[in-house]
């Protein structure tokens, strides 16, 4: 499908105008698009790091400290994910808004004197919302990787004189790396192209590339440019994921030797 997609994209450009790279040139040089693209990348990298870092302790907790109800925990973790994405994003808007739940709660508790305004309609809001939306996608791969770790390895590490912290960094974390990498890639790729979140909670400075793609297809009625933007972002994200994948594999190998 993606093969036909790129094929058709080319064809479209080819058919509609003559074959031209102008759209790509525009996509890559126009400061507006470049700014949007970089911002999308920056936001999704932050989201990814935040999501994975926040998810790891949960995955670790469920894998190592929950004894009898692992399946229940995993189920509970995934339930919010299955509720309407649109509504969840909207509800974050409600939570983070000027008169929102968070602000009114903090005001009510007397912790702040006036509503916090830096949490809605900007990149921060996008990061929080996306970190929430993609949490299960980060937790599950890490959990699976942690589950695969042979517990006797940890006992061996302990037996060989490693304390809990050392054995965590020398045994658990390296062995969980494949899960962490999977989580990183799984979260990174779709967040770059997310549309709803930046549109609803991002304000103007939280807008991302996909919003522009949609505009090109819709109001601006410049589908070829939209396609060029889409293809470009796909390549950038794809390249980035491959880089992460190979880099960590190399590190993993080096560490194993």
């Amino acid at each position: 499908m993606v093969v036909t997609f790129s094929f058709w994209t080319q064809n479209y450009l080819d058919l509609d105008t003559t074959f031209t790279l102008a759209n790509y040139r525009e996509a890559w040089t126009d400061p507006l698009y470049r700014e949007l693209m970089l911002r999308s990348l920056r936001i999704s990298v932050v989201v990814t790091v935040a999501t994975v870092v926040l998810a790891f302790p949960i995955a670790y907790y469920v894998s190592f400290h929950v004894r009898n109800h692992k399946a229940l925990w995993l189920f509970l973790i995934t339930v919010p994910f299955w509720t309407s994405y649109l509504l969840r994003v909207f509800l974050w808007k409600v939570i983070l808004g000027y008169n929102g739940v968070l602000n009114s709660a903090l005001l009510g508790l007397g912790l702040i004197d006036e509503p916090l305004s830096f949490i809605l309609y900007n990149a921060n809001a996008v990061v929080i919302t996306l970190a929430h939306a993609w949490a299960p996608f980060a937790i599950l791969p890490i959990f699976v990787a942690l589950e695969r770790i042979d517990r006797s390895l940890l006992e061996a590490a302990k037996d060989l004189g490693d304390g809990p912290v050392r054995s965590f960094f020398r045994v658990t974390l390296p062995l969980a790396m494949p899960g962490v990498v999977a989580a990183t890639i799984i979260v990174l790729i779709p967040t770059v192209g997310d549309y709803i979140t930046p549109r609803l909670v991002g304000g103007t400075e939280g807008l991302m590339i996909s919003n522009m793609i949609q505009v090109q297809f819709g109001k601006a009625n410049n589908a070829p440019l939209g396609a060029a933007l889409a293809v470009s972002s796909m390549f950038i994200v794809g390249g980035l994921s491959l880089m992460i994948f190979f880099a960590t594999r190399k590190i993993g190998r080096g560490g194993a030797d």
Binding site: F5, I185, I189, V192, G193, D194, M234
Partner: peptide, 16 residues
């Protein structure tokens, strides 16, 4: 693993 917007755009072009 593809952003949904990319799938949407790709399909739209194909269909058109």
């Amino acid at each position: 693993v593809l952003p949904e917007i990319i799938i949407a755009v790709a399909l739209l072009i194909v269909l058109i």
